[in-house]
Design a binder for these strands. Structure first.
Lengths: 243, 243
DNA sequence: ACCTGAACACCGTTCAAGT
DNA sequence: ACCTGAACACCGTTCAAGT
């Protein structure tokens, strides 16, 4: 830690944290494919082989980056209003995705490669916290698990949707979009072409996320009313703050 | 088929279709990272450089593979019951995902790299068809677009969820899962550890998808009832065939 | 004009050789 | 015992040299 009294400059002692933060920076700034052992080593002023002390693999490096972002998500269970808590976590997740768009493919995709119990611990913590939250709200554990899956699927689906709307150069959007649409045969794509204006208008991601959450929470409530209700105060699911 | 009267064996004339089908097979059988220009060339008995006639890029190859799968999805608009149609398309999409799990990362991820109007045409066709379907059902075009996004996000979220549950070796699942769960500190992960049985029990993907669709369609109906309704017959959104 | 394949500038990872 | 870096077996893509 003391970095060595007269250690070479720009060569702080490595650590897993330091390596992963450098990896995240590389991904944020230059995209996923810029994250190679060799470039990361160079970024840190080390022999690329040194990195294998902190990640057994390039795959482990990717997992680590995803974990670094996901671990910032906190779902606290010690709150009276669990629905509001889910809503806040959802918007927090959305902000993380917008802040690290290049990491989103990792977040949604890496779990496909690893059985749940073997995933990086930082990605399991939000799951545990959400289970705790829902169980504290009165849901039986198995039902809490199901609800967690719906919620998580919703979040993944949403950010994938929203990030598709982001265009690198908003200046060129108009021309680019029209160019692209003009490429489509009019007789086969009348509807899509007709929606050019709406597509250009873009997408209010926060509002769309709230709408999806409304659906989920309202749907839950509907189910509760005709089935054994999961305790906790009965409360409208509609969000308090709409735009 | 005829393979050329006396063409060299194993060297049928190339075409974009043939190249992409070979690429898909490679991905299905050996995973995404097995799809390289060189291995694909070898698979086809050609110089890898020959492939550049049919795909300008490895990225274009990836897009082509995703398109090949997605283009199998058909949303026909000429049916009386549009909700049932959405439901069928959703299950069709699920089946495609299960049939080509290695392609799913491409399907959910590649659109992030390309503006909508410039995507492979085969991936835009389902969008156009769904817009047609919803507009025929009475939705204003812009609303149809929003609904499409929710629906699409739901599908992506669902298959990502479901594919996480697939375990390569179901024989070893039990041991592996317990091993993994035991790795987690009990005091920090009591809920997750307590759900071991439920996690082992697996996941009824078709049922979960239907539940999500119920939520979406019921939620839609709820909105309609308090806003200008989108024409078309009023009908319960609950699915006809449940398990 | 078209096609081929040598060459370039990279990769991840292993492992022998050094200390 | 630890670390280093040479070496291996790959990559995608360019482009000059052939036809």
């Amino acid at each position: 830690m003391t970095d060595g009294p007269e250690g070479a400059p720009r060569r702080p002692r490595l650590s897993r944290e330091l390596v992963l933060h450098a990896a995240l920076r590389l991904v944020d700034e230059q995209g996923l494919e810029a994250l190679t052992m060799r470039r990361l080593g160079q970024e840190l002023g080390r022999d690329p082989m040194a990195l294998y002390r902190y990640a057994t693999n390039r795959a482990a490096l990717l997992d680590g980056v995803a974990e670094l972002v996901l671990a910032q998500l906190v779902i606290s269970a010690d709150t009276p209003d669990w629905q509001e808590q889910l809503r806040r976590a959802a918007h927090q997740f959305r902000q993380l995705a917008l802040a690290h768009p290049n990491v989103v493919p990792l977040i949604v995709t890496r779990p496909l490669a690893t059985p749940l119990a073997l995933r990086p611990i930082g990605t399991l913590r939000p799951l545990e916290q959400m289970l705790e939250l829902l169980i504290a709200a009165g849901y039986p554990p198995v039902r809490a698990l199901h609800l967690y899956r719906s919620y998580w699927g919703l979040l993944h689906g949403h950010v994938l949707n929203e990030l598709q709307e982001v265009v690198v150069d908003p200046e060129a959007t108009d021309a680019l979009l029209r160019l692209g649409l003009d490429r489509l045969p009019p007789e086969e794509f009348p509807r899509l072409r007709g929606l050019a204006k709406a597509l250009l208008a873009g997408y209010d991601g926060a509002a769309a996320l709230d709408e999806s959450l409304d659906l989920l929470l309202n749907g839950l409530q509907a189910v509760e009313q005709q089935a054994p209700a999961p305790g906790s105060r009965r409360r409208r699911a509609a969000p308090p703050a709409r735009r």
